[in-house]
């Protein structure tokens, strides 16, 4: 390979890199946006006293999906931070302490089941020890669809690079059902639906422009849930 050819390849890569970065900025301005809708359905009065806590649990009884523990943690962390923060018992600590009553196959699906469960002295005692006022059941998942485009990468003596374009859509749907442990009633449901288009342009280097769909669903759901439990 002579110096002329090497310089030409280098110049070509630089030009393509500039085009790639420009395209990335254009696409980031146009795309990778997320739209989120939150619906609240209140069925009873709420409020939480000092010393009381909530526990957020993911539903995992369905055969084709399960609520991710990472999403449950995300909502919990958001609720324990900022103004009007609420004490949240970590999901794993609660499930282990209550074993075997909150496993995927044994967890109460309706408030009637919770009523039966609270008749077990050991369960009622553990609930009191934890200071649980509300149980929040998170149920949902994020689905990816509409994958289009292709990207190919090559490696050669002169360098390496990827070229192409890919995009996909993410859709997060989560419901939060709030059970009042004191009244053994379902006091409300908050639903979140977030959608967003992600892009992956590759001109020499792939530049991911990821729509933070699940993260946005987490933030919006947690903020609404915090207000709901505080009775606002």
């Amino acid at each position: 390979m002579n110096a002329y050819t090497a310089n030409s390849i280098s110049a070509l890569i630089t030009r393509r890199a500039r085009v790639g970065i420009f395209a990335a900025f254009v696409l980031s301005a146009l795309g990778a946006c997320t739209s989120t809708t939150v619906d609240e359905f209140r069925q009873g009065a709420t409020g939480i006293e000092t010393g009381e806590s909530i526990v957020i649990l993911g539903r995992r009884h369905a055969s084709d999906y399960e609520t991710r523990a990472e999403f449950v943690d995300c909502v919990g962390e958001r609720i324990t931070s900022g103004n009007d923060s609420i004490s949240v018992i970590p999901e794993r600590d609660f499930i282990d302490a209550m074993f075997p009553w909150f496993e995927p196959r044994t967890a109460p699906l309706r408030t009637r089941d919770l009523e039966r469960l609270m008749a077990e002295q050991v369960v009622a005692q553990k609930m009191e020890d934890f200071g649980v006022r509300y149980i929040v059941w998170l149920d949902g998942f994020t689905e990816t669809s509409g994958r289009t485009g292709s990207i190919s990468c090559t490696v050669g003596p002169g360098g390496a690079g990827c070229f192409g374009f890919g995009s996909w859509e993410d859709d997060s749907n989560f419901d939060a059902r709030v059970w009042d442990v004191a009244s053994l009633q379902n006091v409300g449901t908050i639903s979140t639906d977030a959608t967003g288009q992600s892009y992956l342009p590759a001109l020499v280097i792939p530049i991911p422009l990821i729509a933070r769909v699940e993260a946005n669903a987490c933030v919006r759901l947690a903020d609404q849930l915090k207000q709901f439990v505080n009775g606002e």
């Binding site: 074993f99 075997p100 496993e103 995927p104 196959r105 044994t106």
Partner: peptide, 13 residues
């Protein structure tokens, strides 16, 4: 591990 926990819960109950 989830299956083993499932065994433990169904066996004990």
């Amino acid at each position: 591990v989830v299956a083993l926990r499932d065994l433990a819960s169904s066996f004990s109950l």
